[in-house]
Amino acid sequence: MIAEIILAVIIIYIISIILLVIKAIKGPTIGDQVLAIDVITYITVVLFVLTSIYMKAALLIVIAIPLALWIYALDIYIAKYLEEGDLGA
């Protein structure tokens, strides 16, 4: 019962990722593209946790934490570049 629910939820998340990838390629400004990649990566975090519970290999959940942290760092890089012109190096 629970296994079928997890599989259906994974399929719906993958449809959302496909729609967001098209928007990340097409988006008119840079801000749109970074925002779409942001949402794609956070949804990938949920996909990782659900797939590792479904495949009964629960030690793979440690991958999800650095993914969330580095995507925050990418946001800050783009924000500093757009506002000040250089990253202060």
Binding site: L35, D38, A68, I71, Y72, I78
Partner: peptide
Amino acid sequence: LAPAGSHALARAVHRA
């Protein structure tokens, strides 16, 4: 982390 990141992005896009 997610609201902080998108807030920084929005501020930078508006100022630039």
